[in-house]
């Protein structure tokens, strides 16, 4: 597929989709969104890139192997759960800290956020791995 229209559109769409995916990831705790949806949005953007420019250039642009992304995500999700274990609580108990940002209000940071980021990375990695390998066929 060598469509100029698709390629041009992708140039604008991909950064937008990636930004949206990150926004959706972090707003997910309070508004619709979260790791699953954000990962799918990001993966859609990258899949678009793969179709427009070919899987090879997508892999080059990504620099990181999707399998690594999956692995890091799974490790992050599991690792966020291990925090609680080290504190003597059941696996995956949410632990929260208050993060004081100077000039801004207090932000709550907790292990579920890390968990959600892990989910995001897994979904992103899985979809990318599947789509890219199929494109390479």
């Amino acid at each position: 597929m060598n469509s100029t229209i698709l390629q041009t559109a992708t140039r604008y769409l991909l950064p937008m989709l990636l930004v949206i995916s990150v926004v959706v990831l972090f707003q997910g705790h309070n508004l619709p969104g979260g790791g699953f949806i954000a990962g799918l949005i990001g993966a859609s953007g990258l899949a678009l890139h793969g179709m427009a420019f070919g899987p090879k250039s997508t892999r080059e642009a990504l620099r990181i192997n999707p399998a690594t992304v999956m692995g890091v995500g799974l490790a992050a999700a599991l690792g966020s759960g291990l925090f609680a274990v080290f504190m003597g609580l059941p696996l995956l108990t949410g632990i929260w800290f208050n993060l004081e940002v100077p000039g801004l209000k207090t932000i709550k940071v907790g292990t579920p956020v890390i968990f959600d980021i892990g989910v995001y990375l897994v979904v992103l990695g899985v979809v990318m791995a599947i789509v890219l390998s199929l494109l390479e066929e």
Binding site: F36, L40, V126
Partner: peptide, 8 residues
């Protein structure tokens, strides 16, 4: 999760 898994 069912939607995502059925996709996989």
């Amino acid at each position: 999760t069912a939607i995502v898994i059925s996709f996989g």
